[in-house]
Computed example of a mutant assay.
Amino acid sequence: MQLNTIAPASGEKHARRRVGRGIGSGLGKTAGRGHKGQHSRAGGYHKVGFEGGQMPLQRRLPKRGFKSMAAGTVADITLAALELLQAPEVDINVLKAASVIPSHIRGVKVIKSGEITRAVKLNGIAVSAGAKAAIEAAGGSVA
């Protein structure tokens, strides 16, 4: 094999469409653009969603809804949930691994609901005032 003998496989290359080159080519006269109208003319262009001047569908339909980017990123867990969790140290990853909170949650806050009797060390988790008192009373700590 020589560099000057390399050629593409048969059927790989297609001849480009030469429009407006006479009747015999099959693409003479209107050059495949049909008769009249915006698309037949040079520079014929319209935006995506353009409907010929009619009010476009995305503008005819009413605006609806709002999705807050901040909503649903902080989860609340109770003291009762911490009691059931058999881990001496708790952080967000431990809670996700135990399926106590969903995986998309970015922040956690412990609220005072239920009882806690064992010592638990919390790392990087927000705590309400009542929950902090209950955790420290049980011998735990909040970092």
Rank of each mutant, 00 (worst) to 15 (best):
A70Q: 12
L82C: 05
R41V: 10
G44R: 05
E51R: 13
V48P: 07
G11V: 04
R16V: 11
V48Q: 14
G32R: 05
G37L: 02
E12K: 08
A87M: 00
A81T: 15
P88V: 06
V90W: 01
P88Y: 00
D91C: 03
Q58W: 10
T78A: 09
R18G: 00
V48K: 15
F50M: 06
G28W: 07
Q58V: 08
A87F: 03
P88M: 06
A15T: 14
G52N: 08
H14P: 00
I77S: 01
E12M: 11
R18H: 04
H39S: 09
Q86S: 14
R16Y: 09
R16G: 13
K29S: 12
V74T: 14
G37A: 08
Q58N: 10
L82K: 03
L85Y: 02
V19N: 07
K47Y: 09
L27P: 02
R41K: 15
G26Q: 13
Q58H: 11
G53Y: 11
G44K: 06
L61S: 05
L57S: 14
G32F: 07
P88G: 02
G49F: 06
G24T: 10
G26H: 10
E89D: 10
A75V: 03
M55L: 15
G24N: 13
G34Y: 06
R59H: 08
G20T: 02
R33Y: 08
T78N: 03
A15I: 07
G24P: 01
H14I: 11
R60P: 05
V74Y: 00
G24Y: 01
M69W: 08
H39M: 09
A81H: 03
G65P: 07
R17A: 07
R64G: 10
H46M: 13
R60W: 08
R17Q: 05
S25H: 03
K29L: 12
G26S: 07
M55Q: 14
A75H: 11
L61I: 11
P56F: 13
A15P: 00
K29C: 03
L84N: 12
E89A: 12
H46T: 12
P88A: 10
A31P: 00
A71W: 09
